[in-house]
């Protein structure tokens, strides 16, 4: 029996325009992550520090920075039911602290339920993000100055 193709994830469904921001020039990766974690924490009603700690913990393991210019900090959390995300765009690029010479122009932070049944969807989201946020698309959204435009560009992907 041929396997049914997995429906493409709508990346916009994890975002809202108010969880998208343009990072200031010279901002560090940690600062951007802290800011994004604050937005997501507000949405899922979790203390921001707790979320920052979990995300940093994960970042300390295997880096989530890709050489396409995307970083995908994330955490799998107990007690939440949905995936929630926030996006930062850095037109000037943020020097990655681990990979010398790699500049991050988009940071897509998300949280997902820790249940093992959600892990496949968690991986699907990572796959969709890494294959969609290719240099050309990142360049395109980093040239935008309004979060709503960026959100629309992401919406237009699906």
């Amino acid at each position: 029996m041929p396997k049914q193709p997995t429906p493409r994830l709508s990346l916009a469904s994890f975002l809202e325009p108010d969880r998208i921001f343009i990072a200031a020039q010279g901002a560090s990766k940690d600062a951007v992550i802290t800011c994004l974690a604050g937005m997501v924490a507000a949405k899922i009603q979790l203390p921001p520090q707790t979320l920052v700690q979990r995300i940093m913990q994960r970042e300390a393991g295997i880096s989530t920075t890709l050489d396409t210019g995307l970083a995908i900090p994330h955490a799998r959390l107990e007690g939440i039911k949905d995936f929630t995300a926030a996006l930062a765009v850095s037109p000037d690029g943020i020097a990655d602290p681990v990979h010398t010479g790699v500049f991050i122009k988009a940071v897509f932070l998300f949280v997902s339920p820790s249940e093992s049944s959600c892990f496949q969807r968690h991986l699907q989201l990572l796959a969709a993000l890494s294959s969609t946020f290719q240099p050309a698309f990142i360049e395109k959204i980093s040239a935008m100055s309004v979060p709503a435009e960026i959100f629309a560009a992401i919406q237009a992907l699906t």
Binding site: R58, G61, I62, S63, T64, L66, D67, T68, L70, I72, H74, R76, F119, H122, L123, L126, A127, A128, L129, S130, S131, T132, Q134
Partner: peptide, 22 residues
């Protein structure tokens, strides 16, 4: 032992997406 299977698979999925693109 250092990272765990979940993190390894996550990183591979990300690297695969970056390499393969769309």
């Amino acid at each position: 032992g250092a990272h765990g299977a979940d993190s390894q698979l996550e990183r591979l999925v990300m690297a695969w997406g970056a390499v393969k693109g769309d």
